[in-house]
Simulated assay, not measured.
Amino acid sequence: MIFLINKCLNFKIFNFISYRIIFSLITSFFINLFIGPYIISCFKKLQNFQIIRTNGPIGHLKKNTTPTMGGILIIISICLSVLLYCDLYNVYIWYVIFIILGYGVIGFLDDYKKIKFNNSHGLKVLYKFFGLSIIAIFIIYIMHLNQANKIDLELIIPFYKKIIVKINYFYIFLSYFVIVGTSNSVNLTDGLDGLAIMPVIFISSGLGLIAFLSSENCLRNDINIFHLKQANELSVLCASIVGSGLGFLWFNAYPAKIFMGDVGSLSLGGALGIISILLHQELLLLIMGGIFVVETISVILQIAYFKFKKKRMFKMAPLHHHYEIKGLSENLITIRFWIVSFILLLIGIISLRIHDAI
């Protein structure tokens, strides 16, 4: 909105995307700080408390008086910041907002059902998966209709620029798995105070940097990215996610005063997935989001191993619960996962230039 007003009034400071990135981050951060206490107080009165799994770690039982559905706070701050500082004529922005809101609704229904029936089941897995799939397929179809050139069907391979895979219509299936898969991966990782939100912040920062550089045609020969004219606005949106994430972490850090719930984890995961698709950095997302990948694989291995061997590979899945059962403190696990996530972010950024040395 400010971007559009700026165009009309010729207020030049907001002509520079760097200023809009900074203001977007700061605005979403302070929106969370301002309305966070009111949301927490309201949810406590409504008794929107976290439902703890009966078969989960014993130490989590004390969290049954901590409000959940804090993802609503994240979505509000992101959307307000985007409306203020993004170019609303840019279709990339609306792709991401559609996923955030759509997945947010699915997550809200899941959280609401858990609270209403006082159990950890939520929506049936089939219904939840169906809802996520319909939203993903719809937005992928719209994106496919609006494809402007053959670049839209090419996949960038990290670490080596000369390898660009033409995936043609496999793009549709890849996009689906990236959006739905990333959404569920973030959801699985969100099991400890502050655990999921910091990797989201790191990845959003990395994707925001790539989005900013993607609009610079002069850099296309120096780094492993496509020149995408519309992508620069995604850097403003990524900044709003970073700011919102930091603002939410203010209340979600150990000991958490509020949890994001499925409404937050599904929407944030979906947003990361579709942003990586728009930037053609799906494989880079696997690197930067390695924490989410490992957490998901640990669940898959646990289920498969138990099915065939009738015993557990890990003491509990996802992986962070395994370390909890082994005796590591929640805070220690979270911080170590943050460190690993930051290292993966750096590896991802390095991969944009490492082709020069190969």
Rank of each mutant, 00 (worst) to 15 (best):
L83G: 07
I22P: 01
K311G: 06
P37Q: 12
I135R: 07
K116P: 00
F259N: 06
I39M: 15
H121T: 04
Y176A: 02
N90Q: 09
K257T: 12
I241G: 06
Q50R: 05
N119R: 06
V263C: 14
F259H: 07
F43M: 01
S28E: 05
L126R: 12
T182R: 01
I17D: 11
F3H: 05
A136C: 14
S133M: 10
I343H: 11
G208L: 12
K310R: 14
Q230M: 12
T27S: 15
L153D: 11
I274E: 04
G70L: 10
V178G: 03
L9H: 03
Q147N: 12
N48L: 04
T182W: 00
G290K: 10
K7Y: 08
N168R: 13
S265N: 09
S265T: 05
M198K: 02
G269S: 05
A231Q: 01
A304W: 09
H322K: 01
V293S: 10
I93P: 09
I339C: 14
K114A: 00
I223R: 04
V165D: 03
Q147T: 13
R353C: 15
K229V: 07
Y112C: 09
V263E: 03
V125G: 13
V125N: 08
Q50C: 09
F251W: 12
L346M: 06
E282G: 02
G191T: 11
E330S: 05
S214E: 12
M313E: 07
L109V: 13
K128Y: 13
S24P: 08
V293R: 07
L283Q: 06
I156P: 00
I179Q: 05
S329N: 12
I300N: 03
L25E: 11
I300K: 02
F159N: 01
I287E: 12
H227N: 15
R336G: 11
N10K: 13
L272G: 04
F98T: 10
Y305K: 06
K124M: 08
Q302W: 12
I172N: 04
F34G: 09
L328A: 10
I142P: 09
K128Q: 11
M288N: 14
K114L: 01
G102H: 08
F177N: 09
F117L: 00
I76R: 03
G208C: 13
K309G: 07
F16K: 01
Y141F: 15
K326L: 15
I156Q: 00
N119H: 14
N221G: 11
F11C: 11
P255T: 10
D87I: 03
F43Y: 12
K114G: 00
T189C: 14
S183F: 07
I137Y: 11
L213M: 15
L332D: 09
G269L: 07
